[in-house]
Design a protein around this nucleic acid. Sequence first.
DNA 1: GAGTGGTCTAGACCACCCC
DNA 2: GGGTGGTCTAGACCACTCT
Lengths: 255, 255
Amino acid sequence: MDSTAQTTLNALNAPTQAPSFRPLYDQIKILLTQSLIAGEWKPGESIPSETDLAARFGVSQGTVRKAIDQLAAENILIRRQGKGTFVATHTAPQHQYRFLRIFANNGEKHHPTTRFIDLKKGKASAVAARLLDVKIGTPVITLRRVLVFAGRPLILDEVVVSAARFPSLTLELAEASRGSLYSFFETHYGVRMIRAEERLSAVSADVFAAEQLGVREGAPLLAIDRIAFTYGDKPVEWRRGLVHTDGYAYFNELA
Amino acid sequence: MDSTAQTTLNALNAPTQAPSFRPLYDQIKILLTQSLIAGEWKPGESIPSETDLAARFGVSQGTVRKAIDQLAAENILIRRQGKGTFVATHTAPQHQYRFLRIFANNGEKHHPTTRFIDLKKGKASAVAARLLDVKIGTPVITLRRVLVFAGRPLILDEVVVSAARFPSLTLELAEASRGSLYSFFETHYGVRMIRAEERLSAVSADVFAAEQLGVREGAPLLAIDRIAFTYGDKPVEWRRGLVHTDGYAYFNELA
DNA sequence: GAGTGGTCTAGACCACCCC
DNA sequence: GGGTGGTCTAGACCACTCT
């Protein structure tokens, strides 16, 4: 393709002229993301080879490569040399607890088991509505559970999602699924979590949390507020976790 | 350069043949890092252009580019289109509090002021020695301070460093410097922090912390244990911060 | 206009995986 | 051996900055 193509494609896709210049690989990235949303390639499957995609989009292999590089950096695609490029999935054992940052103090990552407490249907509060980007009063589902690490109940979770996105979600369904909640959301509802934001603070255990986590009332707990997003930065889940950080800690790397 | 060069260079730099293959850009990255350590380019300065570096190392511009790309992704170098590539510095206003993840609940990032408490010289405990990668009993300096956000004392910090690396460090010196501690370390001791690891947990305020932070004894605090590294992944600082997360939270993004 | 980083291309070859 | 991603090159042209 000649060098005018980038300008041409740009003109076609430009949204009201905004940034005045959008690289080709950025547009390829958008096209790939659209195919992912449309379900052209399902989680765990491989996408076409770089050469094929280059032909399909009418650009060079290097340009496709750069687009895929970025999606791989965002953990949306996974490259495997000699095999192909695959759609990331929360189902894979290594990615089951991709967003879990709680590690034992010796550095080990324990995969927790889940004990569900209850599931309630209700309407979105002002806070929930804002965080989930829905209207106040929209039907939501609130699910509570305890995550057990090495036999010890360490996290009390309260998970809020829009009922529309997860129709006929019941405690029984969730209980029947093994593994992480996101793995369950993905296989049963086709909802893939791409990224998440967390806000951490320290709080005192209330009666309920103390009972569930086996600590005294007023004991310090690590509160983790999480908003999880799917494609297109749509917030899908709001979660508040209370963590009994005894022998465990939230690990984070800064660069 | 012909395509055998990569193998040749590889053979020259290969450390006991280990991974059997090391890409050229990886070796360029090492060479650049060595120049940074040697102080060939100081923080804030620009490094030579990609073309110049390509000539100097005898590789193509694209290969240098890939090496720089990675160093830029690690926040070690900073690219500025049309101007050049610069050595990152904690001195720059935007990077003063690069590792600080405490944000006001409205999302704003406040730059704290510092109130120093005291500075003590002592010997490394077993824990400190392990974390700082020095021998037990090595002279260390322990510095305590309070970080004040918008007039409120929110973080009680205890900072431990090797005395050898920060000779003649005194309270007066630290107090005289404005801005972040890392900015001070960089300008006065030439020690640049590249990355850090943090482990977060919830604890109860002891008498001293309660007094310093203006909370009641036993109040829940967010404990942040940090190890900061300089070039070559050498641990240089061990820090424990106790955060009164009232109106503020530790923000983290997961991908 | 000169210099820098940023994009895009085309083609060669290497490393890895699986048939 | 054939396919896939990974590396490296050489060259053209674009976008941005400063003078």
